[in-house]
Design a protein around this nucleic acid. Sequence first.
DNA 1: TTAGTTTTGGTCACGATGACCATAACTAAA
DNA 2: TTTAGTTATGGTCATCGTGACCAAAACTAA
Lengths: 236, 236
Amino acid sequence: MYSSSANVSERQAAPPSLAISTVIFALRPSETSGRPTLWLPLVRRIREPFKGLWALPGGPLTHSESLQDAASRNLRETTGLAPSYLEQLYAFGGLHRSPTQRVVSIVYWALVQPTEAALADVSENVRWFRADRLGDLAFDHNAIVDYALWRLRNKLAYGSVAYHLLGEYFTLAQVREVYEAVLDRELDPANFRRQLRSTPEIEETDHFLQGGKHRPPRLYRFTGRPGLDPDNRSTL
Amino acid sequence: MYSSSANVSERQAAPPSLAISTVIFALRPSETSGRPTLWLPLVRRIREPFKGLWALPGGPLTHSESLQDAASRNLRETTGLAPSYLEQLYAFGGLHRSPTQRVVSIVYWALVQPTEAALADVSENVRWFRADRLGDLAFDHNAIVDYALWRLRNKLAYGSVAYHLLGEYFTLAQVREVYEAVLDRELDPANFRRQLRSTPEIEETDHFLQGGKHRPPRLYRFTGRPGLDPDNRSTL
DNA sequence: TTAGTTTTGGTCACGATGACCATAACTAAA
DNA sequence: TTTAGTTATGGTCATCGTGACCAAAACTAA
């Protein structure tokens, strides 16, 4: 995907190549505490440059698909996942991102629900990592993940994006755990509850989560629509 | 720039071409009311497609420059302007943006100060338009400008971007006029003043604006730095 | 029956905000 | 020189959202 058989002079003349990558977030229980934590899938590079290192899923842009379609396809092909949320993150085009070739990467970020994430393909060259323990990645992918995390935290604090990391029905405590995992700080249950109950996009249901160890919490559902990206504006 | 001499089959095989465009905002006094208003420069297309229509300044990405450098150069070449603020807006990659060729445009948006804007080149093929009276533009550039306006309003309400549309020294009323022009609603002078005086990035000076018709207002200056784009993170 | 934990509802002080009033300070006209 | 007009500036007041905190309700497990 990033490789080329052209020689140096031909590369100088050729336009920068265009690639699509995606940062995919999902919640998984921590091995230690069991509390939900942010994870993301990476693929191992099987060619130079950075052969053997882990990298974001990505690939070239096919001629017949839009940017968002390319990101969605890429996500499906590498991990078998269908995202519940997909948004463009940034176009990275620094001159020395790849040592062998000038590459401009248009990066998307996605959220997948835990039921989906459980079905994700895992193989020798595809593995999930905790978002806060990635190690050194190929290219500038560490900086890209950092920026994606920054965006996720922003969207979480401001917008209504947490529900795309959960199933259709959820308890308020589950939403709170998402916030606590992403923002990395504890939130007061009563105050958090008050805020969510004042947002019209959160709908109370008549069902309760059974089987817990304590008082059964009420189940809620999210009735809002995603934001207003240029890609998604046609549907409004 | 968007043209190609390749035939249909060659275009199918070729990768999508990559272009940089910029949405450039500046304040100019309205012809009618004299109050500051948002304007932006457009260039007339001299080739098909959309020959004769107005379009955003743009061009191809040179091999030896970063995305931001390309946007900056493009801005300078078409309008002679140096921006005081420059940020990536979005990568537009719909399949049918151009009828003759698949083009992916990475769009930046910029703010220029009024002293700069007064020096801007104007010619037969470069003209300034009021942002709210553009008419039909080439390609999907109307949608791009709409999105840029949305971003500008967001950054204005949240971040500290208004000062890049003003000179080094400004009165609080001038800042308020920027907000009123961009957000298109009147703001209470006393309340607006209270807010600005509570932001540490606004510094009071010992000078006053002379020559007005009424009580001379105090001059302030902005001491903050722009945000934290991926492009600008290295400088932090 | 009791202890332990979570869910849920409530109070309170505080800061930010919008609506509104009043005075200060300057220009321009009378 | 006086006066009217306009902006700049300072202030009050009610309201709302928020964080800190308390307490009862509801369920499980011992």
